[in-house]
Design a protein around this nucleic acid. Structure first.
Lengths: 206, 206
DNA sequence: GTCTATATATGGATAGAC
DNA sequence: GTCTATCCATATATAGAC
């Protein structure tokens, strides 16, 4: 017998996610969360003892939402370059579904790197994904098919390419307006994906 | 007769810069700023009517500090690829001098894109730098020396490559520890610069 | 479990003496 | 210009009825 009515706790967590992601920890107000969840403030403290505790829970969930269906791709049997392209495509698309989430993570991360570090075990997935991915890259290099980069640095550069635009999208939207360049958002973003794949292909293939 | 004693106003602004960059607008406390400036809170309101006003001033200065000596480079007479490399080198080094500043800008930007947009006239420099830079790229493409990318997208990708690491440095420091990889920070970062130049060169040159 | 009412703390801002 | 003391709004958190 499944519980098809969402529990109050779940409702609160969903509301809290929205508010924290929008306003950050410091900017978030318990009242706003309560309003959005359509309960009163006392309820928040009933389910989660404090703002801090509630935030911790949200942060963990938020990190989880960042780790996408990427693992499957990376473990797949495709050629390295195809895996990479799939990674770029899916990663950018996913980040763009909720760009606020990306900037939220970065914001809180920079404010409290230790807190994030203490939750790094969530990244066990990321760790293995990273090693798998880089191993298949090394094979390509050894086979003389690709240019050799330092794996760690290549990893960061790829992340930069896929994370940067979602992170700074609000800025570029404003910037485009300022430059009087009317751009159709979706087309622009799909093209960014293509261009990123192209750039990486040119940069890697010998 | 020069005033070699720094004015109280200046002292406050310096303190405010530190605190706002560290804690963000919402997290910043007027008391903390006053303490750091070794004045009392009333002084802050004497020189700057409100927290909001003080913050605006700081934000403008912070944006100014982000626009580096880059313009000179971009206007120089070097070949495009050399300008690009110089840009990468100087930009990353500069961001790394104060990585907190970068994440501060992004944080406040994402919270209030309109505010940043209203100050976009500060970016007149950026606008001309951008067009100059891209024009010389187009010349290379027309001469058949470089791969053709969409200039706007290339611009974003380059920014991603040079901004991403400074922005997420705290994360990678934690991540490296987690991966048990002892890295010497400065060496790592200089190598990142080299690798970025290499990647761009491979991606662009035909 | 859910609500109202309230305690307690803190932060931004002001008044007014010097 | 600089200080002390204080106001006032707001935020988190709790007590206690239902």
């Amino acid at each position: 017998m499944t519980q098809n009515k969402v529990s109050t706790e779940e409702i609160i967590k969903n509301a809290a996610m929205e508010v924290f992601v929008e306003d950050g920890f410091d900017g978030a107000r318990m009242q706003k969360i309560a309003d959005k969840a359509q309960v009163n403030k006392a309820m928040l403290h009933y389910y989660f003892s404090s703002k801090e505790v509630l935030f911790e829970k949200i942060l963990i969930e938020a990190c989880g939402e960042m780790l996408p269906e990427l693992t499957a791709i990376i473990k797949g049997e495709q050629a390295f370059i195809d895996k990479l392209k799939a990674f770029v495509r899916i990663h950018i698309r996913q980040q763009l579904k909720n760009p606020k989430l990306v900037s939220f993570i970065f914001r809180e991360l920079n404010k409290n790197p230790e807190r994030m570090a203490s939750q790094l075990n969530n990244l066990e997935v990321m760790k293995t994904a990273y090693t798998d991915f880089m191993n298949s890259y090394k094979l390509e290099v050894e086979a003389g098919k690709m240019h050799a980069y330092s794996p760690a640095h290549l990893f960061i550069m790829i992340q930069g390419l896929v994370d940067y635009y979602p992170l700074s999208k609000p800025f570029y939207c404003a910037f485009m307006k300022y430059m009087d360049e009317a751009v159709e958002e979706l087309t622009f973003e799909e093209k960014l994906i293509d261009q990123t794949c192209l750039l990486l292909e040119n940069a890697l293939k010998k």
